[in-house]
């Protein structure tokens, strides 16, 4: 199966979107070759604005374009988009509910060699806390492409999180993404694994291995972290009674938090969270980092064992 980075899919989708919708404009902060907005810039140079290394201004200009009726996609690395320009996103985009799409790439530790300064594992938390912000974390190229089109027709601010490294396809060729929905990729009655982004593929691998252990794990892809499909999350938890979450993000504030908050309020079950455990990353190859920081199918499998053991002990 072919592998593609979600940022690659973003660049391709953006160029297509630009042809369909003249209101779409794209902004970047000197990273257009890496974020892949260069694909759009090549075809629509007049609708592309490279604002230089100035992320606060990037978000402000995007807000102004949106206030005048454009549909801006503002791109840079996730670290700088959500970290450097957090308050600009908060006050110039989210507070006035302007129609800006923040399309951030190089999220998480798979940025790799650049190291901890560039590996944001906080971005989902930062965006999720903003009122009215939609937060989407695509798992593969198909989902990334469709998320771009869905974001463009959605009224209001959207955060799209893309990765640097190539990821395998996890969704079917005829997959249809909708904002605010979660998707069962594998049925199972013993435990539910909620995953997003690159961890969806790991969750599927974990489920495969767990089947050999005699455990039937349900795998659910959660591309929209906010608004979370709470009803479907509760429904899955009711079915299996044990939950594992998996994300390339801090276990604080991201998918694991969102799922846990929802379940605690509506249907408390035991939960184990796989993610970055309140620490910064470091330089290394993506695969080495995923191994070292416990973001693997094996780590998910171990979390499933833990949650099932805790349930037995109850």
């Amino acid at each position: 199966m072919s592998k593609i980075a979600t940022r690659e899919a973003y660049g391709k989708a953006l160029a297509q979107l630009g042809a369909q919708n003249p209101a779409v404009v794209v902004l970047d902060a000197d990273l257009s070759k890496s974020t892949k907005t260069a694909d759009f810039a090549k075809v629509f140079p007049e609708r592309f604005f490279n604002v230089g290394i100035a992320e606060q201004n990037l978000m402000g200009i995007a807000a102004g374009l949106a206030a005048a009726g454009k549909i801006p996609f503002a791109s840079t690395f996730a670290m700088f988009a959500t970290g450097r320009a957090f308050e600009q996103i908060r006050n110039s985009i989210a507070y006035p509910r302007l129609n800006v799409k923040i399309a951030a790439t190089h999220a998480g530790i798979t940025v790799g060699e650049d190291g901890g300064s560039h590996q944001t594992v906080e971005d989902i938390a930062l965006m999720r806390v903003l009122p009215g912000m939609t937060v989407i974390v695509p798992a593969d190229g198909i989902e990334a492409e469709q998320a771009v089109f869905a974001a463009a027709v959605h009224q209001g601010p959207v955060y799209l999180r893309f990765g640097r490294s190539a990821v395998p396809q996890v969704n079917a060729d005829n997959y249809r993404f909708e904002i605010g929905k979660i998707y069962e990729l594998r049925p199972g009655r013993d435990v539910t694994i909620f995953a997003c982004g690159i961890m969806v593929a790991e969750a599927l691998n974990a489920a495969e291995n767990l089947a050999a252990d005699g455990i039937e794990a349900q795998v659910i892809n959660v591309p929209t972290i906010k608004p979370l499909d709470a009803e479907a999350v509760v429904q899955a938890a009711r079915l299996t009674g044990a939950v594992v979450t998996a994300e390339e993000h801090s276990i604080i504030g991201g998918l694991g938090s969102a799922i846990t908050e929802t379940l605690a309020e509506h249907y408390p079950v035991l939960v184990e969270r796989v993610g970055i455990k309140d620490t910064f990353g470091e330089s290394g190859q993506p695969a080495e980092l995923l191994q070292k920081y416990g973001l693997t199918a094996e780590a998910i499998r171990a979390a499933v064992f833990r949650v099932l053991k805790r349930r037995e002990g109850k």
């Binding site: 404009v25 604005f49 606060q56 201004n57 978000m59 402000g60 200009i61 995007a62 807000a63 102004g64 374009l65 949106a66 206030a67 005048a68 009726g69 454009k70 801006p72 308050e87 600009q88 006050n91 110039s92 507070y95 006035p96 509910r97």
Partner: peptide
């Protein structure tokens, strides 16, 4: 607050952000 009062073109208050927004409007 532009969402509350007609005639207000941009929600402002946090200093330093308005000129960027103005640049975006002018580009549009």
């Amino acid at each position: 607050d532009m969402k509350k009062l007609p005639g207000v073109e941009m929600s402002t208050g946090s200093l330093g952000q308005g000129l960027s927004v103005s640049v975006g409007m002018a580009l549009a």
